[in-house]
Design a protein around this nucleic acid. Structure first.
Lengths: 206, 206
DNA sequence: TAGATTGTTAATCGATTAACAATC
DNA sequence: TAGATTGTTAATCGATTAACAATC
């Protein structure tokens, strides 16, 4: 049986739902409705029901969704019930911040190794990690089986490092470098360039 | 005459085009085509032409687009020919990194003030800035006329700080906190939670 | 039971693509 | 001129919304 193809735009909303559900759970709530969840995340109730219905029937008429159950289901769908090891490349301020970020541990991720090409940084400590030489990326990542990387190198180095990551078997890159990356089919990139984020809003300002 | 309403999804692609054009310019190229630009950013040539045509006629049949000219036009459309002052709230690792980020200066932004609520940090120096007390946000931002803020506080403080920013007249928030924010109409938010970025890709991994 | 809310269908709305006359 | 590429139109494709029977 062929697994049904879910539109990427639907998949991309699931982490938002999950984050809001965990927030509700932390507040002590036990159940919610598509109406309430939608108001929280700024998405219509109909769309939330439609999105979730792609993956199964998680609610009950009249009462809505059990929060703990829906959290479990979403974590399974997103494959974050396991813990994913991640590599961080580039130990500037941004890479440094991500290497020490406390927000990954309960959301499915763990930084496992960090890299830089600056001899002054290689061998030094960042957070709990010893900085490895960028030229060793392929060997180190390949043998560790890491599939996720966060890219925090300057724009001029980003494509070259990306090529190394792809060679090493990385399948998903969180890109902080201000450049569009070229990757083969089967490798995913999410872009988090802060300037792009700001430039998407200035259009609407006076 | 009423200004035509441009879909947000089109506006959100313009900064991507601009970034790629500046990269081409740095490589010494003088002109490009929708074909070439599309290949660079992973968007179809037809879509790029359609997007640009919302704002004017910037190309020439047969030869394509003058890169310097198109850069100018996009900067004007996005209103980033001026420099926007930005406030950074929360001097953890992430706020610290953004306060010192070198990538804003040639893309329309300048960090102007930074805040934290930790007495141990208030009055201290981060990058070129003296850390101000978060409780002074409204007065400080209001009198400075700042319209943009980057939010790097913990999830538990994010909505409260957002309310202060809105009161202070901030119209656009780049949110690094892992929570959906509630803002009134006329205030924009871009979300850059790193865990969400990763969770949008794990679905596709084995 | 009565009220609430789901999952789903059909209708609507919006975005993308294909194609091509215009023209550099 | 011949080849290339734009801006735009119409066709296609996909996503969102409205509505409601089912049912808790």
């Amino acid at each position: 049986m062929i697994k049904q193809d879910i539109p990427d735009i639907i998949v991309s909303r699931l982490p938002i739902y999950l984050r809001a559900l965990r927030h509700m759970q932390a507040l002590g709530k036990l159940t919610t409705s598509s109406q309430e969840l939608g108001a929280t995340v700024g998405i219509s109730a109909a769309q939330i029901r439609k999105d979730l219905s792609q993956f199964g029937e998680f609610g009950k008429q009249g009462t809505g969704y059990d929060i703990a159950f829906l959290i479990d289901q979403l974590r399974e769908i997103l494959k974050i019930q396991r813990v994913w090891n991640v590599a961080v490349i580039g130990m500037g301020d941004m890479g440094h911040a991500l290497s020490r970020y406390q927000g990954f541990s309960d959301r499915g991720f763990r930084v496992m190794m960090v890299f830089d090409n600056d001899p002054a940084k290689i061998g030094g400590q960042v957070g709990n990690f010893v900085v490895q030489d960028t030229k060793d990326i392929v060997a180190a990542i390949q043998s560790s089986g890491i599939k996720l990387a966060m890219l925090c190198v300057p724009a001029g180095a980003a494509q070259e490092v990306t090529n190394m990551l792809v060679t090493a078997g990385v399948k998903a890159i969180l890109n902080y470098a201000p450049i569009s990356l070229n990757v083969p089919a089967g490798v995913r990139v999410q872009y988090l360039d802060p300037s792009i984020g700001l430039q998407r809003m200035t259009y609407y300002l006076d």
